[in-house]
Write a protein that binds this DNA or RNA. Structure first.
Length: 758
DNA sequence: GAGCACTGC
């Protein structure tokens, strides 16, 4: 019944009509041959006859700009190990290029896969879904995806979309990525930490694997930098499919960008044709404030100037998903039939710049600012700072107005400012981050010489030094900066090295279960909600979980309560807790538990009624965080140990009684210097647990040091005492033993004689 | 007495 042409194993019998399929020679295909294979009666991947839906989609795929360049692309891939591809939005590169690679390399025949990396999970999932449809296969079979918490692939998988972090993890156990015949790095222009590392890694691997093909895809005009970095790789530019966006600047600088933004939005509403507005601001509070003002003044405007109704929607990542959905709502209908049309205004953070696409945006308002991460290696602090965006980011924002039809972008700064004040590109993340975790991963990847690591933008030596120093103190690296056995174990955990050290050490204190829970809770966004209209109620709810030892134990209480309640979502709502964060903490904990089990770390708890239950957990915490300790000086202020930075307990801390020694999870740099998530520790523990760090010889002078010195002295005396006692006891024991031996001999003799007697 | 831009393993 089945057409012989539908059987891929008989492809060689197909004759001239389908010969193109059989004619596919790996690494030598032409665009015409590939198209013939796509036009065939059945899929070369599954052997099944193509569906009508497949043919419909195929028609659309052929119209994508990237398809016109297929032959050129294949020629470049055939004669080069690296190819750089620049494609604007709408070019079809993310869906099509990996498919061209599949047809060209026929990875199923070679038993290898093609990987295409994405910076974000949702992108990896949704693109894989789309490509599975385009290839007429079931998602998770021939085409799949692999992201944290979810591996949707099978032994049949030939094309795998994954997050760049996932591929990096995979490289840690398979340094040459030998399962892949080609790696496609997508969205490389975003320059995430993981993409940068992966790019460097691909250069190293490619040098050792001539058979490996690497395609780097980017959306910027900064293609020369990529070409140069990849050994002068050839470039292929694919046009996009977007609509023109007209850009307007303010004639004079705006002193108050929030006020200017609101005015502009209302002006658009009053005078521009129908079309939704996207306004970029920097943070939650600012956005909510802007929304309030816009709603109030919008109503006013409608009354006075016969404007249509206004729908104002906030958008930021911590907004509950149900609220986020509102950005997709349609603009309101006119109040009366034939009246002025309604308009939707979305007020958003950077999420709308890359992660989320909102259809129907015609007007963009760009004040030119965003909160950006910065890292200060001197104080070892990552913080968020409102700073001017780059020209590339400004272009990206403007582009959001031209996705469905021609649009307009209003920049709330002068053209001169755009040209002279803004930097060309946003600094890549690797220049703005603490590299502790990354350095450990690199060591695990077999990169020994970090200083000469071939990165597109080399990181500051001081940042590297800080990372190496941290890992050395944690015991993850030895004196020659080589990975220790402990370092190997720590690197397996997908969390900060300090947290991983805590989890691993917790085994010695009998509390790995609790350490896992705390590690998970510290790896998710803040679980405590504090809505403006219910601050007191929220504080009271939090007080129920407060633990006298500090915030870490409070988090543990929350987690335990969460795990034992009947209806988690309702319970979270009732207790002003972020359900999303807690659920995520639960999956992270499960993942960490599996990693721990794989490393043969016993999963144990101490007796809950034991007085040592909490101290043991705090000791384990100290094993990871001894470098983040502050001491309360006599003047009532905290100084961080060694760095002598003046800090204050964050007002959200449950520790109001100001213990003398505290360990903190985070150093928040805002108007003041705050330490957040804080727990009381004992100075003795510091000396015991991290003598190499608390080496008083090298310690800068301060009150804390003098106290530690006293303790050290006392310890020494106690130790000396103990040694004396021990020696005396040993002497006594020896004496006793001698005596006992004699007695034993005598007894034996006696027994023998008794035996003889009996 | 205050904040959490955004990703990711």
């Amino acid at each position: 019944m089945a057409d012989i042409r539908d059987n891929p194993y008989l492809a060689h019998l197909h004759g001239s009509e389908n010969g193109a399929f059989a004619a596919l020679v790996p690494g030598q295909t032409t665009a015409a041959q590939q198209e013939a294979a796509e036009d065939a009666g059945s899929s070369g991947l599954t052997g099944r006859a193509f569906t009508q839906k497949y043919r419909d989609i195929l028609g659309k795929r052929r119209e994508l700009p990237v398809n016109k360049q297929r032959q050129k692309f294949l020629e470049l891939v055939h004669s080069n190990q690296f190819v750089v591809l620049v494609g604007e939005t709408g070019s079809g590169k993310t869906t099509q290029i990996p498919q061209y690679m599949v047809l060209d390399m026929l990875p199923q025949a070679a038993g290898k896969m093609i990987a295409c990396t994405q910076p974000r999970r949702v992108a990896a999932m949704s693109v894989a879904q789309r490509v599975a449809e385009e290839l007429d296969v079931k998602l998770g079979q021939e085409v799949g995806y692999s992201i944290r918490f979810e591996d949707c692939t099978s032994p049949r998988t030939v094309l795998k979309y994954c997050t760049d972090g996932m591929l990096l993890r995979e490289a840690m156990s398979d340094n040459l990525l030998s399962r892949y015949s080609a790696v496609i790095l997508d969205e490389a222009h975003e320059r995430t930490l993981n993409t940068d590392i992966l790019m460097s890694l691909m250069k190293t691997i490619a040098a050792k694997r001539p058979d490996l093909k690497v395609v780097v895809m980017s959306a910027t005009l900064d293609s020369e930098k990529f070409q140069k970095y990849f050994n002068d790789a050839p470039l292929l530019a694919v046009p996009g499919r977007t609509f023109p966006v007209e850009v307007f600047y303010t004639p004079e600088p705006e002193p108050d960008y929030l006020e200017a933004a609101i005015k502009t939005a209302l002006q658009i509403h009053a005078s521009e044709p129908e079309g939704d507005v996207l306004l970029f601001l920097t943070g939650e509070e600012e956005i909510e404030e802007a929304c309030r003002l816009l709603r109030a003044r919008g109503d006013d405007l409608a009354r006075r100037a016969n404007c249509g109704p206004l729908l104002v929607v906030p958008l930021y990542s911590t907004l509950p998903p149900a609220m986020q959905q509102k950005i997709f709502a349609r603009a309101p209908e006119p109040r009366t039939r034939g009246g002025a049309p309604g308009r939707k205004i979305v007020v958003s953070t950077n999420v709308a710049e890359t992660s989320l696409t909102i259809d129907g945006i015609v007007y963009v308002i760009d004040p030119g600012f965003a909160k950006q991460k910065v890292y200060n290696p001197r104080v070892r602090v990552e913080s968020l700072l409102v700073s001017p965006i780059s020209r590339a980011a400004a272009q990206q924002r403007a582009g959001r107005a031209g996705r469905t039809r021609p649009g307009k972008c209003f920049r709330l700064y002068t053209e001169k400012s755009y040209n002279t004040d803004l930097i060309e590109q946003t600094y890549p993340e690797i220049l703005r981050s603490n590299l502790g975790s990354i350095v450990l991963q690199l060591k695990k990847l077999g990169v020994d010489d970090l200083v000469h690591l071939d990165l597109m933008d080399p990181c500051a030596p001081e940042v590297l030094m800080r990372a190496l120093e941290l890992l050395h103190y944690l015991g993850a690296l030895d004196d020659d900066a080589n990975l220790t056995p402990l370092g190997h174990v720590i690197s397996e955990f997908p969390i900060d090295p300090q947290l991983a050290k805590m989890v691993v050490s917790a085994a010695d204190y009998g509390c790995t279960n609790e350490a896992l829970s705390i590690a998970a809770m510290l790896s998710v966004p803040n679980v405590f909600l504090r809505p403006r209209e219910a601050q007191r109620a929220a504080d009271m709810a939090k007080a129920e979980f407060a633990h006298m030892d500090g915030d870490h134990m409070t988090l543990l209480n929350v987690y335990h309560a969460f795990k034992s309640c009947a209806d988690p979502a309702q319970w979270c709502w009732d207790n002003f807790l972020q359900y999303r964060s807690l659920r995520s903490a639960d999956s992270i904990r499960e993942q960490l538990r599996r990693v721990a089990a794989k490393s043969d770390i016993p999963l144990v708890s101490n007796d809950f009624s034991s007085p040592d239950y909490y101290p043991q957990i705090r000791r384990a915490l100290t094993e990871g965080y001894f470098m983040q300790v502050a001491h309360l000086e006599r003047n009532g202020q905290y100084l961080t140990v060694k760095d002598n930075q003046l800090v204050m307990l964050h007002p959200s801390s449950v520790l109001e009684r100001k213990p003398e020694w505290v360990l903190y999870n985070e150093f928040a740099l805002t108007k003041r210097h705050y330490i957040r998530t804080v727990t009381e520790v004992k100075p003795e523990w510091l000396l015991e647990i991290a003598p190499q760090y608390y080496d008083l010889e090298t310690f800068p002078s301060c009150e804390g040091k003098r106290i530690l010195e006293k303790i050290a002295l006392r310890n020494a005396i106690v130790q000396e005492d103990a040694d004396k006692k021990k020696r005396r006891k040993e002497k006594r024991d020896r004496k006793d033993k001698d005596g006992k031996d004699k007695r034993d001999k005598r007894d034996k003799k006696d027994k023998k004689s008794k035996h003889r007697d009996s």
